[in-house]
Each structure stands twice: as C-alpha cells, then as structure tokens.
C-alpha cells in the first residue's frame, strides 16, 4: 500500500516536470522582440552574427522542431551556451550550485533549530507570557521582508561590532583547492582550519536571514500541532502509565506533532529557494540566485531559463521527498 502510494506520487511528478520544461522553452518567446537581438544587446552585431546565433539556438526552425530539439538537448544534459558569457550554461550553473546548496541547507538547519524548541515551549504552556512571545515573534518574523532584515543584520552585527563578514563566501585571501565545489567540504578535505572557520563565519548572516522567515512559519505549525497532539488519548495514557513527563513530551507527543510540520517544511522550501535570490544579492553570495539576478541584467536569458527550470524541478523533487517521508512516518497512512 505504502510503496504503491509512493510510486503514484513519483509518476505524477513526471508530467509536471515536462510541463515546466515546456514553459521554460516558451519563456524566450515572451521577450518583447527577437530574443537574439535582445541578448546581443548594445553590441552592433552584424546581420550575419545574428543569423549565426539564431541558427545556434534553432530559432530559424519551425516552432515544433525547436521544441523537439530543446527536449533532445535537455535529455543529453545540454542547457545550451550562454550568448553573453560564451560558456556552457550547465557549467555556469554547476559552478554556482554548491554555494546555494550550502546556504540553503544551513538556513534550513537554523530554521529547525530555532522553530522546534520555540513551538514546543509555547505549546507546553499555552497562553502563558512565553507562548504569547512565541506567537508575536513568529508573526513579526513572517511579516519581515528578508532583504531588509539582512541589511539590518549587516548594519548592527557586522559593522558596529565587527563580528562577522558581510559579503562573499570565504575570505578572498584564503585559497582552497576546488574538489567538490562546496567550500566547507573542500576546506575540511584540505585540512585547512582557517578556511573552514572563515567559511563558517561567512555563512552565519546569510543563513540566518534566510532561515528566520521559515522559522517563523514553522514555529507556529509546531506549536499548533503540539497543542493538538498533547490532547490526544495516547498522551493521556502515557501519562497515566506514570511515564516521566519528558518521555511523554518527546517520545509520544513531539514525534507525532512533527509529522504535520514536515508538510510545512516542504512548502517552505519554496520560500528558501526563492529567498536565495534576495539573500545572495544582499550578501554577495556566489550562488545560483545571484547568477539568476545578474543574468537578468546581462540579458543572458538562456541562463535565466535553465536556472528557473532547475529551481522548479528541485522544488518538485523536494516536495516529493517530503511526501514520501510523510508516507513513511505517518502510521495512519498504512490503514488507508
């Protein structure tokens, strides 16, 4: 039953991914005018150059042939070549991706570390002053524009106290051989403590900025589902058995309360991915989000197209993973 459900979910994701690719394909045709001329921009490109690029992008072929060629390229993992930078789009994205994954993972960890204890503490004493503080803080966090919060952090933490670096991923004077592309992992591999320290210090502010908004929403969910679970009969039973309160709360209640929180995490991954663009712009973080924003201004639309496609597929995959985890964790799924 369970594996059938999971297989069903996976199969449903396939047409969505195909649809995303079709939308991405048509995005170039949304441009007001000839995409090649727009991408070549101010340079006085000769008619021959324009024709050559049009040919390279198959724009001189009929639309259905273009679409077929686009999918054939995708199947080979070929995302085309950037007109502006004259480098394969896949390489540009590959360079930027590890930094974004590091940032997003750190933000997710920060969000969970902040939100779960806050929601839990609020739920244990509903309507107490602490609970009210949790609710107000989470409302404030959810209303906070991330980019402005990041600037405030820079203003107060980074410069006045000169505690933490405000831009980049690592101190530019430290050289780490690129093995995996993940600066933190490469630093560990090179056994370079200074590099790891610098990378961690650079990570704090952007990850906090990105994580706080998610933490705000997550804390509310944890609190609400914890309050509900604490009223269930099996919690009463556990208490009646004379189990210590910690065991009741952690083993019986929290584990069940976190299952609905999982769905919220799945939805919030979208916020994390979108927030990348903002936070990476504010903190000059060399990741995918900054690549997208810079490419928009450089009119490098092939990069934008490919990156948006990647973001969408990641989001679908993340939600699929959450769905699968939910199916595995929720004891009630077995019965249905």
């Amino acid at each position: 039953m369970r594996s059938l459900r999971i297989a069903h979910r996976v199969i449903l994701a396939v047409p969505v991914a195909l649809g995303v690719a079709v939308l991405a394909f048509f995005s170039l045709h949304l441009l007001p005018g000839d995409p090649v001329q727009i991408m070549l921009g101010d340079t006085d490109a000769s008619a021959a150059t324009i024709r050559a690029v049009q040919h390279e992008l198959h724009l001189d072929r009929p639309l259905h042939v273009q679409l077929a060629l686009f999918f054939a390229q995708l199947a080979r993992g070929d995302l085309g070549t950037s007109i502006v930078q004259r480098r394969p789009v896949a390489a540009l994205i590959g360079d930027a991706l590890p930094a974004t994954i590091e940032l997003t993972a750190a933000a997710l960890v920060i969000a969970i570390v902040i939100a779960v204890p806050m929601g839990l503490a609020g739920a244990l004493r509903p309507r107490s002053w602490f609970d009210r503080a949790v609710l107000s803080t989470s409302l404030l966090g959810a209303s906070m524009p991330a980019f402005w919060f990041g600037l405030l952090l820079i203003l107060f933490v980074a410069v006045d106290a000169r505690l933490l670096p405000t831009s980049g991923q690592i101190d530019p004077t430290i050289a780490v051989p690129r093995v995996t592309g993940f600066v933190l992992i490469d630093g560990v591999l090179a056994r370079n403590a200074a590099a790891v320290g610098s990378a961690l210090r650079h990570l704090v502010l952007p990850a906090l900025t990105l994580g706080v908004v998610v933490a705000a929403v997550l804390a509310r969910t944890v609190r609400a589902s914890m309050i509900e679970v604490l009223q269930r009969r099996y919690v009463t039973t556990a208490r009646a058995k004379g189990l210590p309160e910690t065991a009741v709360v952690v083993k019986h209640a929290l584990r069940n309360a976190l299952i609905p929180a999982l769905t919220v995490i799945g939805l919030q991954i979208g916020e994390l991915l979108g927030g990348n663009m903002i936070v990476e712009t504010v903190f000059a973080w060399p990741g995918l989000g900054r690549l997208v924003v810079n490419s928009i201004f450089a009119r490098d639309y092939l990069v934008v197209q490919a990156a948006v496609m990647l973001y969408a597929v990641t989001y679908v995959a993340a939600n699929l993973a959450v769905d699968v985890a939910y199916t595995m964790l929720d004891p009630q799924v077995e019965a249905t």
Partner: peptide, 13 residues
C-alpha cells in the same frame, strides 16, 4: 499543478 512547481518569487522574477 504546473504553477505549483515554481517557488513564488522565482516565478515572479
């Protein structure tokens, strides 16, 4: 289903 595949800010940008 299709629109849900895009994170909101990414879609808008």
């Amino acid at each position: 289903e299709l629109l849900q595949a895009f994170p909101y800010l990414i879609f808008a940008v």
